[in-house]
Simulated scan of single mutants.
Amino acid sequence: MKLNFSENHKLLFSVVFFGFIALSILIAIIPAIEVNSNDPMCGVNTLTPAEFRGLNTYVSEGCLYCHTQQVRPLQLDKVFGRPSSPLDYSYLTPLDQIRMTPAVLGSERTGPDLSNIGNRQPSEIWHHIHLYNPRSVVKSSIMQAYPWLYEIKENPDSNDLVIPVPDEYAPKNGKVVATQKAKDLVAYLLFLKQKPIEGISQIEESTSKNLSGSDAGAQLFNTNCASCHQQNGEGISKTFPPLKNSATVNSDNPDKHIRTVLFGLKGEAINGIVYPAEMPPQKDNLTNEQIAEIINYERSSWGNNGKKITADDVRKIRAEGK
């Protein structure tokens, strides 16, 4: 039999078909099986049922259209975390990898990358307020609000999660209560925490080395602190405390200020108010130098006049522990 493809169409079709199958196995199926056989990164957990439902909500609500989960090895991406690794997505099962990975990776970064959002913004309350109305915590945000993920109740039940939305954005009557769908979505966002990789530092050196101390502090503050305390240092009424005219910020003894930034704060009354949102610890996210720059910026801005500190002061408190 002659291999005359121009005349024997059955032979031509068979060669093309089985050639396609062979190539698919070699360049797609076998590599996929090998990737799935990799051990998960140390410390990576599987999604809980709530977090998995949150992932589905993340996709169905279109979060993937504006947010990525892939940090590039570029200077401008350092603010989002270390460069992404394939093992960052090992929490997805093989079927989920086929169905969800394109959605998780995203294709356009209109909003910030979310690969490490659980570390960068670990406040559950903040995420709920941000979802209900992004402008309530980030004035310049162009993100869509998701009020349909919340209910308005005149008399919330004792087991309801009431969201302390700032008065300017709160409903005139009733309280904002998170639905299960909102809780699941926030649970998934808080799950997104990059794990350490040997040889890659989790704490990036200041991206503002060429700036003066105050400018570097301002940049670091805007990146790490302004979403809660606001750029004007006035915080958000009854939700996030102000730094402007703060007794802690202006104190001659900076130890409490340093300790709060390093180890966080929760449940302590500030000027007679117990704020519902926890101050997240920054000891694993920022270097001693970066924390010193932020604190010095806070102590010299908005009319504050606190004593300046050094990285050695931060190092000392860090060594003492909480």
Rank of each mutant, 00 (worst) to 15 (best):
K2F: 06
K10F: 13
L11H: 07
S14Y: 06
S24Q: 09
I25W: 07
P31I: 02
I33E: 01
N38I: 14
E51S: 13
T57S: 09
C63Y: 01
C66F: 03
Q69E: 07
V71N: 04
Q75A: 14
D77W: 15
F80L: 07
L87G: 04
D88C: 12
D88W: 02
P94G: 06
L95I: 13
D96H: 14
I98T: 09
I98D: 00
S107V: 14
G118F: 09
I125L: 05
W126C: 08
L131N: 07
L131Y: 13
P134S: 12
R135V: 15
V138C: 08
S140D: 10
Y146K: 14
Y150N: 10
E151W: 12
E154M: 13
N159C: 06
V162R: 09
P171Q: 03
V176Q: 04
K183G: 11
V186F: 06
Y188Q: 06
P196K: 03
I197D: 00
I200A: 06
Q202K: 11
E204D: 13
S206I: 11
S208K: 12
S208Q: 07
S212I: 11
S212E: 07
A216D: 06
G217Y: 05
F221C: 07
T223A: 11
S227E: 01
Q230N: 12
Q231V: 15
K238F: 06
F240Q: 02
P241L: 03
L243P: 00
S251W: 01
D252C: 00
F263S: 08
F263C: 10
N271M: 05
P280I: 01
K283T: 12
E293P: 02
I294E: 01
E298S: 15
G306P: 03
K307D: 00
K307T: 15
T310H: 11
V314W: 03
